[in-house]
């Protein structure tokens, strides 16, 4: 594994371009950055983003469970209140809406933890000091 530590954003992008243009396999390159640099995605390519599926599944689960809870509660103990229908959709949709947001947010967070492989024991153990610097690591392809 070889490692290059760089000071500035532009210097880092130039070095990364140079490595990619030199024909190094993209999967062999990993970077560490003090903040997000969107150009890196275009240079290194990336696997499809799956957090949106977690968000979608969470949101649909929330909406479904909100409606299921409210409808089950009135069907299991039906009391007519103020002449309103037993299944009163407008207020029940409100509970569904709130749980859509709640479960969607929690689903996205869970998706992030899985996709970004966190909590990361190696990250917790790593004391590599690169304060405010950009790091490019290239994995050696020729294994034993």
């Amino acid at each position: 594994m070889s490692r290059v530590v760089l000071e500035g954003r532009e210097e880092f992008l130039a070095k990364l371009r140079e490595l990619v243009d030199a024909g190094l396999p993209r999967h062999a390159i990993t970077v560490q950055m003090p903040y997000e640099v969107p150009e890196v995605d275009a240079l290194l390519g990336h696997s499809p983003d799956r957090i949106r599926f977690f968000a979608l599944i969470g949101a649909l689960t929330g909406f479904g469970s909100g409606l299921a809870l409210t409808i089950y509660s009135v069907v299991s103990f039906p009391i007519i209140v103020g002449g309103k229908p037993i299944i009163s959709l407008p207020p029940f949709l409100l509970i569904g809406y709130l749980l859509t947001i709640l479960f969607g947010s929690l689903g996205s967070f869970l998706g992030f933890l899985l996709m970004a492989r966190m909590p990361s024991p190696s990250g917790l153990a790593d004391d590599g000091e690169f304060p405010d610097r950009f790091v490019i690591s290239v994995r050696d392809e020729e294994g034993p």
């Binding site: 560490q32 950055m33 968000a55 947010s105 966190m118």
Partner: peptide, 23 residues
């Protein structure tokens, strides 16, 4: 949580932040 600021972590992080802002 062992954040290292790798390219992959930042990419997923920015998506998560966007989704949370949207929610």
């Amino acid at each position: 949580l062992g954040w290292q600021g790798t390219g992959e972590q930042w990419r997923h992080y920015s998506r998560l932040y966007l989704f949370l802002a949207a929610f």
